[in-house]
Amino acid sequence: MPWPHDVHIALPPSYEQGDRSYPVLWVTDASLSFPLVVGLMNWLHTVQEIAELIVIGVGAPDESDPAEFGARRTHDFYPMPRWVNAGPGGARMEALAGEAPTSGGGADAMLSFLVDELRPQLATELRFDDDHGLVGFSGGGHFVGYALLSRPAAFGRYLASSPALSGCEDLLFTLEADYAKTHDDLAAKVFLGAGEAELTDPYVAAADILGSMTRMSQLLRLRNYPSLELTSRLYPRQTHGSALPYALNEGLRTLYPVTAAGSG
């Protein structure tokens, strides 16, 4: 990776009280999303609505320069150097973003780092169950989709909030079509959520978040994969920023109910 990445770890309340293993939730954008995810999980576990998990947040350190932080996120989350989506929305994004559409290309390295390097290293120190989930927001939602369609066995549960799924000129839709040609099942639990008011921001609207999420949900449902559990939600009046806690709240309760992994 071209710069250091922070790794944050939160252990469940009962971790020190026994020797059982726990499912692991991997959270991208650690400096942005990790505190929100952990705080929400603490509450949902207290009211007995979700199972106990180990939570690991990974991401580029938060930078004082927002442009640099944004460039690092883009590099980590998109597998192609030119990360904008195809069609008129992409042209609009390119006009608004200037040089930024050419700063992607690190998603393969990021995914390999999470699955092939960091996971086995931490598994020697922590009691991991063989049950891994992945969370991402916005560009991180594209990364979640990329992980699902390029290495579907790497995680079993996927939560993408406001995912920019048509980035990299519809690459994920090409991957989805290629996967469907050679597979008749997709064993995964997937939650997709976005805000209805994301259409009101010109840049976010150009990112095709609502359109691409709806299109991917429709395609996956029409495949009739017997092992796929898919949930998609649009939250009324919620924007690109405000939809995230809604998606996390419902997504965690959907993917990790108290009966999951023998809990509850």
Rank of each mutant, 00 (worst) to 15 (best):
M1T: 08
M1Q: 13
D6T: 12
I9K: 10
L11H: 06
P12K: 06
S14H: 03
S14T: 08
L25V: 04
T28G: 14
A30W: 08
S33V: 08
L40D: 08
L44W: 00
L44Y: 00
L44C: 02
T46K: 09
V47R: 07
E49R: 10
E52N: 01
V55E: 02
G59C: 05
G59Q: 03
P61G: 00
E68S: 14
E68D: 13
G70S: 13
A71V: 09
R72K: 12
D76S: 08
N85L: 15
P88Y: 11
G90V: 11
M93V: 06
T102W: 04
T102G: 12
G105L: 11
A109N: 06
S112I: 02
D116C: 01
E117M: 01
Q121R: 15
Q121I: 12
D130V: 11
D131M: 09
D131E: 14
V135C: 07
G136K: 08
G139W: 08
V144R: 05
A147Y: 02
L148P: 01
A153D: 15
F155D: 10
G156Y: 00
G156A: 14
S162F: 02
A164R: 02
D170F: 00
F173M: 08
D178Y: 14
A180K: 12
T182R: 12
A187N: 10
A187S: 14
G195H: 12
G195Y: 15
A197F: 15
A197W: 15
E198L: 11
L199I: 15
D201F: 11
Y203V: 12
A207Q: 13
T214F: 00
S217K: 07
R223A: 05
N224K: 11
Y225W: 02
E229F: 00
L230D: 01
Y235N: 03
R237V: 11
H240S: 09
G241A: 14
A243H: 08
P245D: 10
Y246A: 04
A247L: 03
L248C: 01
E250G: 04
L252Q: 02
R253S: 14
T254F: 05
T254S: 14
V258S: 13
T259G: 09
S263R: 13
G264S: 05
